[in-house]
Design a protein around this nucleic acid. Structure first.
Lengths: 236, 236, 236, 236
DNA sequence: CATGAATGAGGGTTCATTCAT
DNA sequence: GATGAATGAACCCTCATTCAT
């Protein structure tokens, strides 16, 4: 009842990267790359369940069954899209952080935010595809494929944040786990501002994000009012 | 009447809430409510495309075709779920804001954040269902159904934010549109912290959210470093 | 494989006319009549498979389930429509023939044609409904219900035709069975000329039918040319 | 490409006949032909609404969904059946008429009747399928698909009839439109005599049809009696 | 490497039919 | 006598997947 529907029997779930037919010179790797890009594109727009292999094929310029030469099934294709996105994001992040290795922990946090926004702004579909992963639209199996990379990616942020925290740069009254979640939630939501595609002021976006998340919306310092549970009525 | 089958018969398109006035004896409204709740539940977990009417039926305790007695089709069902969620959220928000009518604009913003978090924390599936709407998983038709309610909901936040802004409470270097998007992105992402379902410290969550969003993550005040576009390399 | 699909289990197939609840004064008989008319109407437009009980109900001004108080199921309803139409047609025919009892057999044939056309022209939906019966759209069970009435109706024509034949009024080189089929085929097809609904010259129609069928299209008398089987090629 | 699902993708809407030029090796055209034949067969027996794609598949020796490789949907399949039948009938008719180009207009009419009957007698299911089209059982969309071919077919008859008329071969007191309708109605009804499938005397059938329609049922020439409207009572 | 052709499982939707009221 | 509410069987259609070529 209401369970995840597994997609087919997937002959060899764990052989993630079909390595055999990879002899350089063939056009297979190119097609494989095109398929990943196409899948990311469709995934970003429609989510996993909404992604039709025929659409992916169309975008990539091949017929749907051709996908099966490069990937074992839909789940694996989606999984690799997610992983690719995560790996790229992490690489970008780590690279930038490496460049700012000697900055203090707070500047490094600001720089991480900057890098994230800039990457999003470049419309990388992989990022938008990834957003769907968090919606439960993606089957368990795919989620498991990505787990390690997801954690690795999250760890980078956790690291940056906890460094800033232990170096005394962060407010004491904030739960770090929650903060990270909200931080990424806020950053990811930016892609929706971006979406319209009009030429946009990336530097402005970055500044807004940094300011809001690091310095807060308000300059005024005060204790924020807290409601009583009973004040918030859930209207049926 | 007796015409060539058209696409939708629009029996109850606009009967959105209509709660009380059913003469006793009819159990339709009860079932209808159960169906909405069930749909919200499934929608929250699987998204629109992943939602099977049979699942909705099962959760609601009826057979799938019974849904068609209450809604014209899957899209309408989903649409009413979204609308219901939006309407409830807005009502809650407005009620709380009304209670704090005389607070200054900044406190009212804090109070709005508080109310939102509290509502999310109560696990209202309607909220989580709503998150899927932004993923493109939902067909155009449904999106159009919700448009007006969505805008009405957004307007409440826009109002609160712009009041705070015009009263001089917000930092000058923040784009209001972006700020609102990030604010809501951050708030919505909280439901994922919540997800595990363990007993949670709602007051703590609220405080974290308020502090982070209003006062910022850091107590230190400084100009944040800005990367050059070229520093952020997109690794293919 | 490709067999007639019987509609449900039909508790009592042979109890054709539910006789019990017939106490005069109740409004049941009136509704029953309205249902028959409505069914004839829908049947005439959509055929048996295309007829939805909900449509019949709508036309009759009741809900679909109400039908089950008056008829055991869809098949029985349709069957009675057909029978009603047949009985009426036969009655009309016989009445007219009785009025012309003393005419010679050929005039009686002409008169029968006249009566048929006039009835059709009055748009009696029962007649149009009947046309569908011959298309195989109607399940066996219904066909059996009507069989005796159908035969009785056909017999009237057979009688008229064979009288004309044995009285030496008809051409010798015509197969009577085929002639009757074509005669009725031609007459029924008139309802399609009629269909447009514009005011029509019934007397003209009658004359055309009589002349064409009795005197033939052509005044010229000659032996008609006959093709060789091989001349008619079926182009695949 | 990758858009919100629309109602029909119109892959092969206009590829109506296209018989020969498929490079050998593709078995699609063969299957397509089998599907058309199967559909015609089922259509002839059950009508459009009664035709189940599963039945069509079974008759054609494929699974139902395979149909969607060759046709966009049920309507298109039915439409092409109708069109195929019409095109073939017209082709046959025109061919025969071409062979008798130099006969006088009346003989050409006789020959057309002959060809029609002979085609019907060969049981071409396409013809019987076509009869259903006139019953209203067929959705508007399908009717529109066939419209032009239907008119083209009718035009052949109209031509033959009007030629005979203007050459002075037809009786003056007959409405040509009505005559054509009755003529075709009569001819089509022949397929019901044929139906039983027993070995039949096609030449006899042809002669009966020609004689009855051209020379009339009766050899006696007289003015036919006309009823008064009031003589024909519609018995409720 | 890729496609043409087909399959099988399932999902949305319709509709005759039931039954308690 | 008739309706409100629901069911179950089927039907059209979609889509991931296969396999021979």
């Amino acid at each position: 009842m209401v369970e995840q529907k597994t997609v087919a029997k997937s002959r060899s779930v764990n052989r993630v990267v079909k390595s055999a037919p990879y002899e350089p010179g063939g056009k297979a790797p190119a097609t494989r790359r095109r398929l990943l890009d196409a899948a990311a594109f469709v995934l970003a727009e429609k989510g996993f369940t909404g992604m039709r292999l025929s659409d992916v094929g169309e975008v990539a310029g091949v017929q749907a069954p051709a996908i099966y030469y490069h990937f074992n099934n839909k789940e694996e294709l989606a999984g690799e899209v997610f992983i690719t996105g995560l790996v790229r994001s992490r690489a970008t992040l780590e690279e930038v952080l490496a460049l700012h290795e000697n900055d203090d922990a707070l500047d490094r946090l600001a720089v991480a935010i900057d890098a994230h926004v800039r990457l999003s702004a470049r419309q990388t579909v992989y990022g938008r595809a990834w957003m769907h992963r968090s919606t439960g639209d993606v089957p368990e199996a795919v989620e498991q494929m990505c787990q390690s990379d997801e954690r690795a990616y999250a760890r980078v942020w956790t690291q940056v944040l906890s460094n800033a925290h232990s170096d005394g740069f962060l407010r004491g009254d904030i739960d770090l786990k929650t903060a990270q979640q909200m931080l990424l939630g806020a950053l990811n939501s930016i892609s929706f501002v971006t979406r319209a595609g009009r030429a946009l002021d990336v530097d402005g976006l970055v500044r807004s994000a940094q300011t809001m998340l690091l310095s807060g919306l308000s300059e005024t310092q005060r204790a924020w009012p807290l409601l009583a549970e009973s004040e918030v009525v859930d209207p049926f």
